[in-house]
């Protein structure tokens, strides 16, 4: 997936609490070492940050101000085709998930999620 061994990851969510929670879980012992490359609170910030930090993994909310998650995925995959994106969203309908996957996301996790659910989803992504 990447030339260097240590994976980097970006967290995109308009809720700071969710961003913090994901960051804390990623830092825990379950996952291999992952660098948090950046946190973004909206889609535009996420695209900028992704261009600079070129993360291997991204967790992505869908309902966000400025640029929504779907458009954001499309833009990022355009210049980072190898990056794995996990959609973490409360929008639980299939059409949304299918659209996100079609645009390049690699996984889908419904909010609210437990610690295990997030870790499992990330592990599946890294495999």
């Amino acid at each position: 997936m990447s030339l260097h061994n240590i994976l980097s990851m970006m967290i995109v969510d308009d809720s700071m609490i969710i961003r913090n929670r994901i960051a804390r879980l990623v830092a825990g012992p379950t996952l291999p070492h992952i660098n948090i490359a950046g946190l973004a609170a909206n889609g535009e910030m996420a695209v900028e940050l992704a261009r600079d930090s070129r993360p291997d993994l991204i967790t992505m909310d869908l309902t966000m101000p400025l640029l929504d998650g779907e458009a954001c995925i499309e833009r990022i995959i355009d210049f980072l085709p190898e990056t794995k994106i996990l959609v973490v969203s409360a929008l639980a309908d299939k059409a949304t998930a299918l659209r996100a996957i079609k645009k390049g996301a690699s996984g889908f996790l419904h909010k609210p999620f437990t610690d295990e659910e997030l870790l499992d989803s990330l592990l599946e992504l890294i495999d």
């Binding site: 809720s15 700071m16 609490i17 913090n20 969203s89 409360a90 929008l91 639980a92």
Partner: peptide, 26 residues
Amino acid sequence: GESVFTDDRHADIVGEIANTLSGRAR
């Protein structure tokens, strides 16, 4: 796991809960 308890954070979590409700409703 939060350690900051400002108004913002409280508002944030209420928003997140409301978000969950909206996803389920849809």
